[in-house]
């Protein structure tokens, strides 16, 4: 089957899609967007997290046909927002992860970035207080990391929240 969808603001078409394959497979193998990672294919690890019509979801748990006509935003779409082409700048969350040392092998990182972006959108992004440790752990409970031990990830989320709150109040 053919699937038309909007990914990171761009209308795209995936051809020769087998209806039972996942949105994750469509993104990685058919549309050349390998940012979302495939680690478990059973919803357990969160490394394939994307925005699906504005709500975060594991793209491995969405059938290709269910994505017809939907808006998807992947980790590739986070950086794009700050500029185009070679000017592409990392976004606040990505910068914070790098600075805080929250990235080791990096396999879990794309999913964590999208899920963190969503947490910040729902908190500081709406003028609410920055999330505390418990809220962060809850929001990231579906994202597994086998390297970092999570502490640096939590640090990174705090840092990103601080910066996003500051830039929000300037705007």
């Amino acid at each position: 089957m053919r699937v038309n969808l909007n990914v990171n603001g761009e209308d795209m078409t995936a051809e020769n899609v087998w209806p039972g394959e996942s949105l994750l497979y469509v993104l990685r193998e058919r549309l050349g967007l390998p940012g979302s990672k495939n680690a478990c294919e059973q919803g357990e690890c969160g490394s394939c997290t994307v925005y699906f019509d504005g709500v975060t979801a594991c793209s491995c748990m969405i059938a290709a046909g269910q994505a017809e006509g939907r808006r998807i935003r992947t980790v590739e779409g986070l950086a794009e927002e700050s500029g185009k082409g070679s000017d592409k700048k990392l976004d606040t969350v990505q910068d914070a992860f790098v600075e805080a040392g929250a990235v080791q092998c990096g396999f879990c990182t794309p999913g964590l970035l999208v899920q963190t972006d969503d947490l910040l959108e729902r908190t500081v992004g709406q003028g609410k207080p920055a999330p505390d440790d418990a809220e962060i752990r809850e929001a990231l409970a579906g994202n597994l990391c086998r390297c970092t031990g999570y502490e640096k990830i939590i640090d990174a989320v705090h840092l990103a929240a601080e910066r996003r709150a500051a830039s929000g109040s300037n705007a």
């Binding site: 491995c60 748990m61 269910q66």
Partner: peptide
């Protein structure tokens, strides 16, 4: 298939066709 969180596990792991 609704949310797919059961169905897709079965499809991804070839448990159901």
């Amino acid at each position: 298939i609704m949310g797919g969180t059961d169905v897709m596990v079965e499809l991804n792991f070839d448990k159901r066709r």
